[in-house]
Structure formats: C-alpha cells, structure tokens
Amino acid sequence: MRRDVLAWPYLTGLVVLVLFPAMAAIVLAFTEYSGVQPPTFNGLENFSRIFDDSLFWKALANSLIFIAISVPLRVIAAGGAAILLHSRSRAAAVGRPAAYLPSVMPDVAYALLWLWILNPIYGPLTAAFESLGVTSPGWLTDPWATRVAIAVMSAFQIGEGLVVALAARRALPGSIYEAAAVDGASPLFTLTRVTLPLMAPALALLALRDLILSFQLNFVPALIVTEGGPRLATTFVPLYVYRAAFTYFRFGYASAVTVLLFAMTAAVVFVQYRLARRWRFV
C-alpha cells in the first residue's frame, strides 16, 4: 500500500467532507438542534413532523416534477450534443465549447439573467412570444409555466454531462462504424442500432447522476429567480431544506430531511444498478 500514498489526501478529503458529514447528518436527524443549545435526542420526532408537514410533500412533488422534465431534457441535450460533436471536424471543434458555454456562467449570474429573461413586462421572452403573435404564458406567475421555465433553464447547463457523453462516444471503436457503413446501414440505422445501444450504459449513468444533481440544480434558480413561487410551485426540496436549516435554524429537522434524501438517492441508485447490470457486454 506504500506506493499508493498519493491516494490518501483525496481519500482523507472524502472522509472529512463527505463520509463524516453524512454520518453526522444521520445522528443529528434524531435530535432537536437549533444551533444555540447543544443537540438533544428526540427520537423519531423529526420524522413524524416531516410526514405531517404538507409543505414537505409539496416540495417533494415539485422536485419530482422538476426531475421528470429536466432529466430527460438534459440527458438528451448532453447525449445528442456529444453524438453530434464528437468528430474531429472543424464545425464540431467550434460546437463543443459553444455547447459548454452556458455551464461556465456563475450560477448567480445565470439566475439573474433568467430573472430578466422571464420578467413578464421587461423580459425578452415575453416580447419574443408577442412578436410571434402568441400570448406569452405567465412566466413567474403561472405555476406550470414557471416550473417548465426552471427546467428549461437547467437544460442549458449540461457541460459536465457533455464531457462524460463525449468520452463515452469517443470510446466506441471507429472500425464498427466502418463495418456498419460497408453493411449499408443508414445514419439513422447506425444511430439506433449501434451508437445508442453502445452508449446506453454511459447515458444511464449520466441520467442517474443528473437525477441526483437535480436535487440541488434548482436551488439557485428557486432562491433567486422565483423565490419558491408562484404559489409554492418552485419550492423544491433543496430550498425547503435551506429554509428549515438556515432561516428557521431547525438543524435537527433539516438533517432528518437530509437523511430521507440519502435514503431516496440510495434506493434510486440501487434500482439503477440492478437495471444496469444487464448492460455489461463489453
């Protein structure tokens, strides 16, 4: 193990910043803790409160709606862009950084931008709709329009997914594409019968990662663009946790929500893992 010393700083970092906090969260979940007095054990009290809190269920439902819209959008965008942009052509070399560009914008700057874009009076989106002669939905006022807007917003920032999908596409051997060309396969046939099945494991992993990312992806937009509204339509789980912990200082309660998040994530990962085992062909 001596030759693996270089792994230690990273592993130590993970223990201190991920493993230890995760375990601390589990302990805090069973306490009453406001940050002023030391935590006191209160059993399953927090969990029973969570189940009684209609706002939690609302936030969870909102998050699931967000996931249902944003994860497919983002995976299709990242996978599609990677398939389109993996070649060594000059056009692709321009396209790759362009597709990554929105991900480079600081989250706050990006949120402020959308605050303007979605503004019903001053925003360009409303103006664009009107110049097409279509009544603009009430961005920031209609619950569904706002949810969709937040999900679409997230679909531009796919940089990391693009990198993963590009690496996956690049790993496919060129010779099988030549074999497909000689076999007379059309581009569409090659896409559906060769590229997509071979990229499926990577895209599934991407979807999984995205699903988990979705729990935090909408935090900054919800905090800055919509402030959880309209009518709580964009109060997602992260915003709910944030307010519980840092507005109302209910650390024990927020930890309990966190633990539920862990449990849900673990369940999703487990199901995905069982499904993904079927794809081990390479």
């Binding site: 051997p173 010779s175 099988i176 030549e178 059309s186 071979l198």
Partner: peptide, 20 residues
C-alpha cells in the same frame, strides 16, 4: 458511391464485431 451501395463486404483487421 457510399460503401453500402457498392455491394461488397469487408472483413476488418480488428474484426469490428458489434459488441452489444
């Protein structure tokens, strides 16, 4: 013509079997 229109078949050095 595209490769697929030439009515020829090819065996590649890497064999290029579809792994899936």
């Amino acid at each position: 013509d595209d490769p697929g229109e030439r009515d020829i078949a090819m065996v590649f050095q890497e064999l290029a079997l579809y792994p899936h």
